[in-house]
Amino acid sequence: MKKRWLIVAGLTLLGGVLAEVPGVVAGNWAQGPLGLILQPAPATPGGGTVYKVGAYPLYTAELADGEGKELVMSYCSICHSVTYITMQPPLANWKPTMDKMLKTYGGEKFIPPDVAEKILAYLQAHYTPETRKE
């Protein structure tokens, strides 16, 4: 990490020195943490009478570590990926959302009450305005 900083600073200094016109800064590079998006291979659009696009890629978000994380990952993911959790703004009270999932959408068919309680506790512990970290 420190070495990288030195290289960057060195390059910056070099750029600063090389600039012939006052007020111009040039040659400044930084390590980009955004990552690459790989270019997809050309698609085969199907053949005969079949239109196909293949499997849809998953890009599921990482949940915060903590008690109940595995339950959330296994039960909530039955109907939707946990990206649905990280996508929300921090909610002060996750109970209405839990109730909507359990009753309105029928999640209670899959999720026992004691598990639902642990899931709610996990969400309150990591995804409220006070507790959300990332």
Binding site: P57, Y59, T60, H80, S81
Partner: peptide
């Protein structure tokens, strides 16, 4: 490349 709000659905 589009902005992935959720991946499934």
């Amino acid at each position: 490349p589009l902005l992935r709000m959720t991946d499934r659905p």
